[in-house]
Design a protein around this nucleic acid. Sequence first.
DNA 1: CGGCCGATCCACT
DNA 2: GTGGATCGGCCGA
Length: 192
Amino acid sequence: MKLGRDFYMGDDAVKIARDLLGKVLFTNIKNNITAGIITETEAYLGVADKASHAYGGRRTLRTETMYQVGGIAYIYLCYGIHSLFNVVTSKQDIPHAVLVRAVKAYKGIDLMLRRRGLSKLTPQAFVGPGKVSQALGIDYSQSGISLLEKKIWIEDLGFKVSDTDIHAGPRIGVDYAAEDALLPYRFMAKDI
DNA sequence: CGGCCGATCCACT
DNA sequence: GTGGATCGGCCGA
């Protein structure tokens, strides 16, 4: 079943990042449905997190999305090329978010591969946040859209990930965040 | 208005 | 392992 507002409004983005492992991220782009089982996430803890775009309470046109109520997408352009998909969590004015870093193809795999420019499935085909967005047809123009509607949403289809199958470690590409770069806010699910 | 740089990916050595 | 691609956002002047 589709995740509702309650799932996204929790205060603990780290817990939500963990809970998202095994959930299924769907998109419906021009009537083409594709989906992937989430296998890797990272939590970004808002104003107190030097790795977050909202660190120190920064509010700009771009980051304003993160300050809204949990349950919407925060998608932004990275390195001028890649759209990175985040789930906004927590309450109004608490800018927490969870980055989806990897999925395992679940539905529409042919189209997912085609969007990636691949002819066959490889282990790394959908590993990496830029690849996830490309495969699912997500781009930064969709930032701010609700995950409770019919374009992008997340379902719990009963895939279980036990604690012993979760690996936690430091986030990727955030060396600039000083001591916060070392926090274990990255979660990976072993072989789903 | 100019300049720097990034929550990345790929090709190439 | 390394460097180039590529461009919107952000900040300082």
